[in-house]
């Protein structure tokens, strides 16, 4: 009998293993990365972005950050539209990750200005109080190797120009990583479509009483002070001491939609109430 014949046993065990393998692992190749799931707007990585992606891999960022937004309400509100297969066709390897010690990064591109990322990577807690992310200041002391990057582009079959490779000269790994982060999720142009047009008159539901002001000050400290300064005196972003001149309705719009051209992120995930409290706090500040 076969339980006494190890070689036949090995063949049978292999056959048992291969059934599920073929159905669930081999067959999907017929659908994935074909014309069916292609997204025209998705482009391969340029040389600097690819170098940045390899820094991301080397430093193991995927151990704490995912890169897939799931089609779940809270997730789409928090991060942006859910991920589609066609967005990943140039990803070798994929970097979807399995843990969110930090937030998902599939839609991080275009959320913050470059300067935010430089500050954050140099000293994460300066931009995100309480963060437990390691500091990556040393990336600024290492430069990208243009010749090696060219070789990598060749292996992956990504298009590039000689000028693009020449431009890598003198770029740091930090420059590369930031360029990569800014590419994530940016190809499909969802941020422009997510802009909300506010119709009708905006009326602040809150009076500037002490409770609202202290809550607004706390929200300011958690979300705004890293760029606009603890004393509203500006840093990465402009000073806000004169914010009351902008007016309540306009402040609300800016906070909700962000100012994409100015590098200001959208804070719509905070919801209406918290945004109004921040607006109330800003309006209470003397110029």
């Amino acid at each position: 009998m076969w339980e006494r014949r190890p070689i036949i046993f090995l063949l049978l065990a292999t056959a048992a293993i291969l059934v599920g393998t073929i159905v669930t692992m081999v067959l999907p190749f017929a659908w994935v990365n074909t014309e069916k799931d292609r997204i025209e707007a998705v482009a391969p990585y340029d040389a600097l972005q690819l170098a940045g992606r390899d820094v991301y891999i080397r430093e193991g960022c995927n151990n704490c950050h995912t890169q897939t937004v799931r089609p779940l309400v809270a997730e789409v509100i928090r991060y942006g539209p859910y991920s589609k297969s066609g967005e990943f066709r140039y990803d070798r390897p994929h970097l979807w990750g399995s843990r969110r010690t930090g937030p998902d990064l599939a839609r991080i591109g275009g959320k913050y200005p470059d300067s935010w990322h430089y500050h954050h990577l140099e000293d994460p807690r300066s931009m995100v109080p309480g963060s437990n992310m390691p500091a990556y200041q040393f990336l600024e002391t290492r430069t990208v190797d243009p010749a090696f990057t060219r070789k990598k582009m060749d292996v992956l079959g990504f298009p590039y120009t000689d000028e693009e490779i020449a431009a890598l000269d003198g770029k740091t790994e930090m420059d590369a990583l930031v360029a990569y982060l800014q590419k994530l999720g940016a190809d499909i142009g969802w941020r422009e479509h997510a802009q909300v047009q506010v119709i009708g008159e905006l009326v602040n539901p809150y009076a500037p009483d002490p409770d609202v002001l202290s809550e607004g000050a706390r929200l300011y400290a958690d979300n705004c002070a890293q760029c606009h300064g603890v004393a509203l005196d500006g840093d990465l972003g402009p000073e806000l001491t004169g914010a009351r001149d902008i007016g309540e309705a306009e402040l609300y719009r800016d906070l909700w939609n962000g100012i994409p051209d100015g590098g200001m992120p959208s804070f719509s995930t905070l919801g209406q109430k918290k945004i109004w409290k921040i607006v109330t706090f800003l309006m209470s500040q003397e110029p």
């Binding site: 999907p28 990365n33 990943f88 070798r92 390897p93 994929h94 979807w96």
Partner: peptide
């Protein structure tokens, strides 16, 4: 690509699966 760098033979969703 080099002695200590390689790229997966599979891309994106296939690679994940």
């Amino acid at each position: 690509v080099s002695l200590f760098k390689s790229y997966s033979a599979y891309a994106g969703t296939n690679d994940a699966n």
